[in-house]
C-alpha cells in the first residue's frame, strides 16, 4: 500500500513538474486566450448567422431527403456557406495566428527536442558557403564533449560532419574555426528542459525566427549554418508517446470548446 502511494505520489509529482504539465497548462491558457481573442476580433453576429445557415442546410438535407433537387441544392448551399464561414473566420484567425505562432516557436525550443543523452553520439553538421572553406575548418571542443569518429567531408554539399558525444550534463560551447574566424555552437547534454537550438544560421531572418534560438552567425564567416541532430521529444501518455504539438492541438481545442461555451463566444 505504501509502495503504491509512493509510486502514485511520484507519478503525480513527475506529471506536475514534467513537460506534460507544461503542455497542459499552456494548452488551457492558450485555449482560453484564443477564444477570447477570437470573440473580440470577429463579427460574432455574422458568424452566428453563418453557422445557423449551415445547420439549416444540413437539416434540409435530412428533412427533404426524398427530393433530390432539394438535397443537391442544399449541398451547394452548404459549400457556399462553408466558404462564407471561413471568410468570416479569416480576420480573427489572423489575429490569433500571429501570437500563437510565436508562442509555439518558443515552446518548441523547450519541448520539441530532448538534450543529447550523456555518452550518446550525435552529429554536428557545418554547412559552408563554398567547398574551399572545408579544407581549413577545425573544431575546438570543451573537455565534456569528445569526438568519437574522424570528421566526414562532403565536398559536394559543402559540409563537414563531426560525430561527437557528451560525457556530462550541461550546456557547452563548441568552436568552429574556418577562414581565420571562430564561431560557437551550443550543445545541451543530459536531461531536463533546457532551451535547445538545433541550428545556428547566418542571415535568413524568418528561418532564424522559426528554427533557431541562437544569434545569427557573423556575416563575414564562410559558414552558412551549424546544426545538431537532437532527438525528438515524445511526451508519454498512457504508454503512447506523441509530439507535444499534437497534445497541444488536442488539449487547446478541448479547452477552447469548453471556454467558448462558458463565455458564449461563437467560433
Amino acid at each position: 500500500m505504501a509502495c503504491f502511494a509512493a509510486f502514485s505520489f511520484s507519478m503525480v509529482i513527475s506529471i506536475l513538474t514534467g513537460p506534460l504539465a507544461i503542455v497542459i497548462v499552456v494548452s488551457v491558457v492558450v485555449g482560453l486566450a484564443m477564444v477570447v481573442l477570437f470573440g473580440y476580433t470577429s463579427d460574432q453576429k455574422a458568424i452566428g448567422i453563418a453557422k445557423d445557415q449551415l445547420k439549416a442546410h444540413l437539416l434540409a438535407v435530412r428533412l427533404y431527403r426524398d427530393q433530390i433537387p432539394v438535397v443537391m441544392g442544399s449541398y451547394g448551399k452548404i459549400l457556399r456557406g462553408t466558404v462564407r464561414y471561413l471568410k468570416l473566420a479569416f480576420k480573427p484567425l489572423l489575429y490569433v495566428i500571429v501570437p500563437i505562432t510565436l508562442l509555439m516557436v518558443q515552446m518548441d525550443r523547450y519541448l520539441g527536442q530532448t538534450p543529447i543523452p550523456v555518452n550518446a553520439p550525435f552529429l554536428l553538421t557545418v554547412h559552408f558557403s563554398s567547398s574551399d572553406a572545408l579544407n581549413d575548418a577545425t573544431l575546438a571542443l570543451p573537455s565534456e564533449i569528445v569526438m568519437t569518429a574522424p570528421p566526414v567531408h562532403i565536398a559536394a554539399d559543402y559540409q563537414i560532419v563531426w560525430r561527437l558525444a557528451g560525457t556530462r550534463d550541461g550546456s557547452y560551447e563548441m568552436n568552429i574555426n574556418a577562414g581565420g574566424q571562430s564561431v560557437e555552437k551550443v550543445v545541451c547534454v543530459g536531461g531536463g528542459l533546457p532551451r535547445i537550438s538545433t541550428v545556428r544560421l547566418r542571415g535568413q531572418f524568418w528561418n532564424r525566427v522559426f528554427s533557431s534560438a541562437e544569434p545569427s552567425l557573423p556575416e563575414n564567416v564562410s559558414i552558412e549554418s551549424i546544426s545538431i541532430n537532437y532527438p525528438d521529444r515524445n511526451i508519454e501518455i498512457a504508454g503512447y508517446g506523441m509530439n507535444w504539438i499534437w497534445l497541444f492541438f488536442i488539449l487547446s481545442m478541448v479547452a477552447g470548446f469548453i471556454f467558448k461555451e462558458l463565455l458564449g463566444i461563437q467560433i
Binding site: V30, G31, M34, V35, L37, F38, K51, L54, L58, I78, G81, T82, Y85, L86, A89, P92, L93, V96, I97, I100, T101, M104, V105, D108, W206, N207, V209, F210, S211, I245, F248, F249, S252, M253, A255, G256, F257, K260, I267
Partner: peptide, 23 residues
C-alpha cells in the same frame, strides 16, 4: 516560411477548419 506555423495555428484555426470540415 517553414514548418511550425504550418503545423498548427491555434484553436481558432482548428475550430474553423474542424467546423467547416464537419459541415
Amino acid at each position: 516560411l517553414p514548418a511550425l506555423a504550418h503545423a498548427y495555428a491555434g484553436p481558432g484555426a482548428g475550430f474553423a477548419v474542424l467546423s467547416s470540415f464537419w459541415a
